[in-house]
Design a protein around this nucleic acid. Structure first.
Lengths: 373, 373
DNA sequence: CATTCCCGTGCGAGCGCTTCCACCCATACC
DNA sequence: GGTATGGGTGGAAGCGCTCGCACGGGAATG
């Protein structure tokens, strides 16, 4: 490809400013060893000409693109229907600002094997990205495996099963346990759990936490129903219909995310089941939409934005300085007590029980549990 | 930056295959003038080594990145709370597959002036992108102006006001008119409109269409209330509360998008106002979530995925072959009649009135209105 | 005044790929 | 046999930037 003379390059600027290409480059990169006089002159030419350096050339020379990928493998089943993701993305963007990384949001669907391949080859092997953040990956995700196998910088949002990867997460199991315990403390005994897709670690962890609480209360885990949804509101709706219409209707449900919890509340309404009088409901995530539904949802608040910020920060550090050992960060979460669990101060919005390494009534979570933003 | 010897390049492959770098390049680019024998040999080395060409170097040489940006200026106020956007993105992705363009989803918030600047400079001026698709831009959007001023390929999703830009859109005004007319045909007279943000062209167009219908029915536009939301569900909820509790409660509302329409239905429920008996509601978009709410929403179905596909296709054409004249595509939309408008076949899902250049009862829309996918 | 030091600048060699151009060697044709 | 033809290949010049290195000259030092 021959060069387009209308498009300026460093040499043009250098000539106009009466300096060498190197000097212009230094000015562009804020190299301190440029004298003030020269810097001012070059800057002036730069603004006058509205010059901006060619990203490809820069990347080629530096072996850096300044771009990281944000991958939602199950984008269309989760990302847009589960508003939790939007807060996460916001956090990632903030992290990107801090680390001066552009955030590129590659949409990749795990369902489509070939699109993953293309993404991996083009963007990762082709070094189009400096690193990748992978959110909501599924168990045994191919992309995770390939990332781990390569020496490419990545961070997962949400731990993976063998705990050997780089990730940022909250202790879902502990949080679920506390939420369930809250229901048990209310005196409910016909508990039930509305879980997420069984191929997601977070769903499994939350379910495990549910049973932790059940067992520690001396209840019989075998007698309790567990229904599965896919984290979308409508599946919460449908699963709840099944539960309410079943033989052994629950008096309390711990739902694995808010979107489904809202669906469950809808279903209750549809059937004339009162919340929390007939059934108490506790969710997970604390999405914004909650305020639109009555009674207000008692839920576990995830620090989603901090999760995103931390992930990008960690990734940025890994890009700058790769370390072999898994890099992991645990953040803490809060139980927000509102009306849907049956608490007497129903419909008032209070920040509730905080748990974490130092305040948890159940002892600390993973040893390396640390609050961060 | 010195080269990393572990990372292969074309020369390495060339040496291994016993050919020249040029030939390897030709094989990579499917150049037909490589003999079959050589092609096979090179391909073999390529797969054995899992080689993938460096994207930056390739871009530098070709002046193409194969990447287009998808920009949602008001991403956090619209994109995630308004599920319509997800379908749009899906369409864009499909278009990207067809045109062999990677879709990069840059999140840019119009509210933040400096982030736009950074985006524009880094990605557009720095030629990091081959083109840009701008969705849901606001009136007088700075980014639109800058794109028009530069010779950078772009396509808007949603027309802009002076009609001078490249865009893909439906005729919002006509569709809104038909939807409103449907309410008038039902006999409602205390109509009211729940509009979107007044700085969005689509909101203005839909509002204009509403008044078109009002006027052509001989009703007094001055007596009708218009409330504004921001397209988020919760603002529909709040605006509807105001309407229902006001002095002159409406018997029918045309809402500028489904998310707000759902909010309005929630509000009605909250106040014991029955839909459609006490108030009829018609929305716009036909988002998936509708099926979760009773009564089912009568609404205008946007061909959002086709909009996305068409936009990417058009952009791709513009990149390959820039034309000075504005490139524009009009798609058609359908009114989907369900229960919320008061139709007797309430709660049954029927595809309803179709309108377009040839079937509209109101004459054709813009002359160049064409159905496309 | 000679020597050292260091700051600021320019030179030039890459980074990894594409592509024009020249070249070579079969094959075809006179 | 000589000459045109043309498909396949290699050489090499870019694309626009960064950065190690060399160098010049002014300030500081003995």
């Amino acid at each position: 490809m021959v060069r387009d003379p209308r498009r300026l390059n460093l040499d043009d600027i250098a000539e106009m400013a009466g300096v060498s290409r190197s000097t212009v480059s230094r000015v562009l990169n804020d190299d301190p060893k440029v004298s003030d006089g020269v810097r001012v002159r070059v800057r002036q030419v730069l603004t006058e000409t509205r010059f901006h350096p060619n990203a490809a050339a820069r990347s080629l020379a530096t072996q850096r693109t300044g771009i990281i990928g944000l991958v939602f493998p199950r984008v269309f089943t989760m990302m847009f229907t589960d508003p939790w993701a939007s807060v996460l993305i916001k956090g990632c963007l903030e992290g990107g600002e801090r680390a001066d990384l552009s955030l590129v949001h590659m949409l990749v669907s795990t369902d489509d094997e070939s699109s993953i391949d293309r993404f991996f080859e083009r963007s990762v092997m082709g070094r189009h990205l400096d690193g990748v953040i992978l959110a909501s990956h599924v168990l045994g995700d191919k992309l995770v495996a390939r990332l781990q196998a390569s020496d490419f910088p990545y961070v997962l949002i949400g731990r993976d099963q063998p705990l050997a990867a780089n990730f940022v997460d909250i202790d879902n199991r502990l949080a679920a346990r506390i939420a369930t315990q809250h229901l048990i403390d209310h005196g409910y005994r016909r508990l039930c759990h509305l879980s997420g897709p069984p191929d997601l670690v977070i769903a499994l962890d939350r379910q495990a936490g549910f049973f932790d609480a059940i067992r520690s209360a001396g209840l019989d885990p075998g007698s309790l129903q567990v229904e599965c949804g896919n984290f979308e509101q409508v599946t919460g709706f449908e699963a709840a219909l099944r539960l309410f219409q079943g033989a052994n209707a629950p008096d309390a449900i711990f739902v694995a995310n808010d979107a489904m919890a809202i669906g469950a509340i809808q279903a209750a309404r549809e059937l004339g089941v009162r919340v929390p009088e007939d059934v108490a409901i506790v969710g997970f995530d604390d999405i914004d939409m909650n305020r639109m539904f009555r009674p207000h949802l008692t839920t576990v608040r995830q620090p989603s934005d901090a999760l995103g910020r931390t992930a990008v920060g960690l990734l940025s550090a890994l890009i700058a300085n790769p370390v072999p050992a898994p890099a992991q960060r645990w953040l803490s979460a809060d139980l927000i007590v509102r009306g849907s669990c049956g608490c007497s101060f129903a419909d008032s919005r209070i920040d509730g029980v905080r748990y974490g390494p130092d305040s948890s009534p159940y002892g600390s979570g993973p040893e390396h549990l640390v609050a961060q933003n």
